[in-house]
C-alpha cells in the first residue's frame, strides 16, 4: 500500500475526476429558495441557512471552483489549488442539496474521490514543492498505491452499502421482480420504452434483473480483490447505470466515469505488485 509508482495513471484519474466534478458544479445552479424543507448535507447540520448565499454569490463560488480545478489539473499552486477545488466543490454541492427537494446522490462519489485525490497532494506536498521548484513536477510526482486502492474500495463500498440497505429494508424478497415491474409502470417507463414494457410484462426477466442487481451490489467489495472480477464489476455497474438512465432517466454519469476509470481502466493497466 505504501509503495510509490509513477503518477501518470493518477494524473489521468485526477483530470477525468475534475472534468466530472466540473460538470456537476457548473452545469446546475442553486435551486429556488422556498420554505426550508430539510437539511440534507453536513452544511445543513451546522444550522447555516443556504439561502443566505445570494445567486450572484453562488455563481462566484462556481467561477472560483473552475479556476482552482484548472490550476489543479495543470499542477499549478498545488496543494492549495487541490484544497480550494475540493472545498469549493463540497460547498457548492451542499448548497444545491440544501435547496433541492430530495437528496441528489449523483455528486456524492465524485466528492469523496476528490477528497481522496486532495489528500494525495496534501500528503505528498513536500515532494511536490521540491519537484515544482525544480520544474519537473510531472516526472517527479509519484502515486502511492493506497490512492487508487482506496478509490476502488470506496466505489465498491458505496454499492455494497446500497445492496445491504436493500436487504435491511426489504430482505431477499426485494429481488423477486415485483418491485421492478411496479416501478416501471409507476414511473411511466413501461409505456415510454419498449424495453421497460417488456420487463414490466415479464415477471421472470424482472426477477433475474433484480436478483443480479442485488447480488452485484452486495458483493461489490469482494469483487475488487482481483483484476478480472474488478473489471467485470466495473462493466456490469456501468451497464446497470445505462439501463437505469434509459428506463428511469436517472443518470449517474459521475459513477459511470469513475467506475470506468478505477474499476476497469486502472486495474487493466496497473503494474503488478
Amino acid at each position: 500500500m505504501g509503495e510509490r509508482i509513477p503518477a501518470r495513471p493518477g494524473l489521468v484519474a485526477l483530470r477525468v475526476t475534475l472534468v466530472v466534478a466540473g460538470y456537476y458544479a457548473l452545469v446546475s445552479g442553486m435551486h429556488d429558495c422556498g420554505p426550508r424543507l430539510h437539511y440534507l448535507s453536513v452544511l445543513g447540520l451546522s444550522g447555516i441557512e443556504p439561502c443566505v448565499v445570494p445567486r450572484i454569490g453562488f455563481s462566484l463560488l462556481q467561477v472560483l471552483f473552475a479556476l482552482a480545478a484548472v490550476l489543479w489539473a495543470l499542477q499549478k499552486a498545488v496543494p492549495y489549488s487541490a484544497w480550494a477545488a475540493t472545498g469549493l466543490f463540497v460547498l457548492i454541492e451542499s448548497l444545491r442539496q440544501e435547496t433541492s427537494h430530495y437528496s441528489d446522490h449523483q455528486p456524492y462519489t465524485v466528492t469523496m474521490v476528490l477528497v481522496l485525490l486532495c489528500a494525495w497532494y496534501q500528503i505528498e506536498r513536500r515532494a511536490i514543492r521540491i519537484a515544482a521548484s525544480e520544474r519537473r513536477l510531472a516526472e517527479a510526482l509519484v502515486l502511492p498505491r493506497w490512492v487508487p486502492a482506496l478509490a476502488i474500495f470506496y466505489l465498491a463500498l458505496t454499492y455494497t452499502l446500497s445492496g445491504v440497505d436493500k436487504l435491511v429494508h426489504s430482505g431477499p424478497s426485494w429481488a423477486d421482480g415485483t418491485a421492478l415491474r411496479m416501478w416501471l409502470v409507476h414511473s411511466g417507463a413501461a409505456e415510454r420504452s419498449t424495453l421497460g414494457g417488456w420487463i414490466a410484462a415479464s415477471p421472470r426477466v424482472a426477477f433475474l434483473l433484480q436478483t443480479t442487481t442485488l447480488a452485484v451490489e452486495t458483493l461489490a467489495l469482494l469483487a475488487t480483490r482481483t483484476r478480472i472480477t474488478s473489471v467485470l464489476l466495473g462493466v456490469t455497474l456501468i451497464g446497470m447505470h445505462l439501463a437505469t438512465w434509459h428506463l428511469f432517466s436517472v443518470h449517474f454519469f459521475g459513477n459511470m466515469v469513475l467506475c470506468a476509470v478505477f474499476l476497469v481502466w486502472y486495474p487493466l493497466r496497473r503494474p503488478r505488485a
Binding site: 440534507l40 456524492y108 482506496l150 446500497s162 440497505d165 435491511v168
Partner: peptide, 29 residues
Amino acid sequence: FVALNVVVPFVAKDLYPFSVFPMFSKRSE
C-alpha cells in the same frame, strides 16, 4: 476515510457527502 464512509452512512443514512445510497431500497406492495 474508511471509518467515516462506513459509520456515518449507517448512523445518518443519507447526509451529503455520506450515504447508504438508499434509492429504491423499499419493496412495497
